[in-house]
Design a protein around this nucleic acid. Structure first.
Lengths: 232, 232
DNA sequence: GAGTGACTTTGACTTAAGTCAATCTGAAAA
DNA sequence: TTTTCAGATTGACTTAAGTCAAAGTCACTC
């Protein structure tokens, strides 16, 4: 694997090559195929992950089997790092569990597992890394704030919000094209609904010439209508 | 005001009296009456708060006016601390906003405002405080994870989850009595619904002899039924 | 190029929850 | 004690979204 990926990980951006090398040598590379579970929320916590290639979803499963996606994670981003700071003693004794479930979304998804004890070692010698962590967690917190808000406003709004955010991320300001990074099933469960309802909602937008959908490619025809949908 | 409250603030538990004194002398005490806004999410960020007395809700307002409560904050707890770590430069120039709205829930709610620059000063000299912060943010993150899950499962489940959590918090294992800390309106908006629906749901539980409600006092008559409701 | 299987769409139906408007309750004020 | 008013409840109704079952689409394999 290419070690240079570690340099692109925000969390490690202040570390020098020696330190990165140390992390690399103490960590484990793991590979997953599409649909494979990375961890369950019932499982003892033993460290956090960095996505190298592919993508991952973090989700809860309700007792009736429905799943609720909380985050999608893409390369250079970390996940499951928050438990490290909740109960130091319990983490060490592996008496703490993961906060949710996670699954690989693509074949050949490559992850680095940083074990708790390895991370605590890094932290000892690089106190500044805690600021990076704070920055990362703060962003996730803000994201969840917004997410909670958006799912409690119904499917159309939730979808409109998602589409607009994706459009902004893509940066293709002129083209008004989104390439979905995730399956429609995962999108549905992310915006807090089920496949059928998402399908109908996409159809409704298409009938009104607001968007056009072809597989995972979505053309935004009338951005203004989406914005209006969000605002009521 | 009694400075000793600062000692009870988890975030400051490692600081000595001198440092606490310094924080105290550099911070502002603010008082609010019930229903008064502490900050809006449109407002430039200038620091975070500690609740001394009373209580506070953190919430989003959707464009149609409905509100969605994300957190309730009680004495010795902090709120609005996450933005400090998101964009240092923007925070300094006050070009960053609060992540949500907040309102006092009781008359004579007393808060301490710690301005961003004051906090950065503390952080400089007490790197360990960042670990306390991480711990606090991690807990909020876990809370939000669970909250997202619970609101997307319908009102009955959401209510059952809330009641069981409150029962656990109260510690009165024998008594099976909950004293609601918040209004029914705020409870409704916390579990993602409206006053009428909450009212009907409470009624339904009462008709089935699962709970009995008298003002803000709720007797849990059949904990097992609530647990069953959560599990489907 | 037919066949398999996962993903997606559609239709008919049921159910949960929101809306609007009216009424009730109980604590504080006069 | 009566008045007042915010908070809470109820009823009748509408609407959004979930359920179930069937059929369609598309990319692979054989």
């Amino acid at each position: 694997m290419d070690k240079s990926i570690l340099k692109k990980v925000n969390l490690f951006s202040d570390l020098n090559d020696d330190e990165l090398e140390k992390i690399y040598s103490h960590s484990t590379i793991k590979k997953f195929n599409k649909g494979e579970m990375i961890f369950f929320e019932t499982e003892p916590y033993n460290g956090f992950y960095i996505v190298i290639e592919g993508s991952v979803k973090i989700f809860k499963i309700s007792k009736d089997g429905r799943e609720h996606v909380i985050h999608f994670i893409f390369p250079t981003n970390t996940f499951a790092e928050a438990p490290l700071f909740e109960q130091y003693d319990k983490i060490i004794r592996e008496e703490f569990t993961y906060p949710a479930n996670s699954m690989a979304l693509e074949d050949d998804t490559k992850l680095i597992l940083i074990r708790s004890d390895v991370f605590y070692g890094i932290l000892e010698k690089n106190k500044n890394i805690s600021l990076k962590m704070l920055s990362g967690l703060s962003k996730k917190l803000r994201h969840l704030n917004n997410h909670i808000d958006s799912i409690s406003q119904g499917v159309s709004k939730g979808l409109a919000i998602y589409l607009l955010k994706e459009l902004e991320k893509s940066g293709n300001k002129d083209k008004n094209i989104i390439e979905l990074q995730i399956s429609k099933h995962d999108l549905a469960s992310y915006i807090g609904t089920i496949d059928e309802t998402l399908s109908r909602c996409l159809k409704k937008f298409q009938e009104n010439k607001v968007i056009s959908v072809k597989g995972k490619t979505i053309h935004i025809l009338q951005k203004s209508v989406l914005e209006k949908t969000v605002k009521l």
